[in-house]
Amino acid sequence: MTKENITIAALRLFLLRGYKYVSLVDIAGEAGITKGGIYHYFGSKEEVLCTALHYLFDRFEAKYQELFSCSQGVREILDTVIAEREMERYTYQLLGIRKGDYRLNFAGLILEVIQNFPEIQGRIDRNHALFCQAIETKLKQAMEQGEIRSDLDSHALAILILTMLNGQNSLGEQLNTPLLRKQMMDNLWQLLDRK
């Protein structure tokens, strides 16, 4: 059993149940070790949480960079992240969860963490800034290549897209269907399309 296995098991439980409702015994059970085995790598549940969140944030940063620096056009990339929810799919895969078996509560965990661990806010802000920068860079390239309108503010537009992506995580199933996500993407594209 490695530290990474424990980290992933903890992250899975935190996203499914919330930090408050997960104990070290729960994490040990999920990881297939004893509670004492956790103490070989971590000094406390808080340390497990911080490690788990940094692990997730590191992977999200790399995934955003991969998605927004690829050679695909901006429409295809936005369709992948908005309509197809690539980051959610990636998270389920990272945590070893079959989509549909469980619903991860990203918004709930982040709100709980911000309230109880304000020092994590800096890392969240850094992630948002990096995501926004990756999106903005892709938008500028698309503007220069004539793929999208060039009269829009790429920075404000990147924040709008990031807000859409983050907001999707807090919506219930009724407002987050594949059809509605496609309609959101189609409406966004109408705004961006250079016509």
Rank of each mutant, 00 (worst) to 15 (best):
S44N: 11
D193G: 00
I120H: 02
G167D: 05
A62K: 05
R194A: 10
T34D: 13
T34W: 01
L111G: 12
I120T: 04
D26P: 04
G122P: 00
E46T: 11
K140G: 01
Q183E: 15
A134E: 10
C50S: 12
Q168F: 05
D125I: 14
S154C: 09
I161Q: 03
F14C: 13
Y102K: 06
L78N: 04
M184Y: 08
L157I: 02
L53D: 04
L16M: 15
Q145M: 14
T177K: 02
S23L: 11
R75H: 01
Y90S: 03
E86G: 00
K35R: 13
A156Q: 13
A31W: 03
N169W: 07
E112K: 05
A107M: 11
D186H: 10
D79T: 10
K3T: 14
D101V: 05
Q115D: 11
L56V: 06
K63M: 06
G73M: 00
N187D: 05
Q133G: 01
G108C: 10
F117K: 03
S170V: 10
R89M: 04
G32T: 01
L188K: 02
L16Y: 04
K45F: 15
N176G: 07
L171N: 08
C132W: 05
Q72S: 14
G172Y: 06
A156W: 12
M87K: 00
